[in-house]
Nucleic acid binder design. Sequence first.
DNA 1: ATTATTGTATTAAGCGCTTAATACAATAAT
DNA 2: ATTATTGTATTAAGCGCTTAATACAATAAT
Lengths: 122, 122
Amino acid sequence: MPWDLKSDRPIYTQLVEQIKLMVFSGTYPPGSKLPSVRDMAQEAAVNPNTMQRALAKLEEDGLIITHRTSGRSITEDASMIELAKTKLARDQIFEFLEKMRLMGFDQKEILTIITTMAKELK
Amino acid sequence: MPWDLKSDRPIYTQLVEQIKLMVFSGTYPPGSKLPSVRDMAQEAAVNPNTMQRALAKLEEDGLIITHRTSGRSITEDASMIELAKTKLARDQIFEFLEKMRLMGFDQKEILTIITTMAKELK
DNA sequence: ATTATTGTATTAAGCGCTTAATACAATAAT
DNA sequence: ATTATTGTATTAAGCGCTTAATACAATAAT
């Protein structure tokens, strides 16, 4: 919800990611209506063009539907959302494990560190 | 070792990351000599200026030492490398857990998915 | 009917990143 | 002594991203 935008990557890709997370977590349930481009842009403190670009990408991915004059909404297809969510999770894990492997950690170490940190975070 | 450069982030930051991984994994041990800027640039298929920028950043971080006319080498300080390695690992895990949490996974689910995938990767 | 709101498009400017082409000083290698 | 190699610096060009300022068509709201 708090828009966390860094300068090390294009903003619009970060917007895509964060909106995805909101969809996956149920902040925007299937079929629900999104705020207007202008409102979302203001919320995230970015130019409307940039937000537009992010939303266009999400529509391209099939996660969002555009109604020319009445705004946008999340797809009704809940199973598709679930699928995208699972894929993102697996991609994240894979990327993470690969990086840890390149750093020289073996699997036992990785699991130990994760369980430790997960507990710390309560 | 295989330079994996994507176009979604500045190249020089990706070079920094990948060189770091090589240092952490022991590809370049403490005190060892690095190839010249020009050679590394050619190896990674980037402009020498871009590689120079990445190496300058690594020097700024204290991981690399520059000898004006005889090239660069990895710091002798092995414990410092170990520290940076641990920090990077923890940052990775934190970032990953945070993203999973935002997606709506709880800790039990996360651990299950990870152990499953870790086994799949053998 | 009129007005407000929707997504969309365009143009111009500024910025950082990347490349290419050079050049230089210091010094290691010969 | 001469040559090759080192990091370093500079300039110009092109590119994508972002912003700002506008404008338009379609239609929902009044």
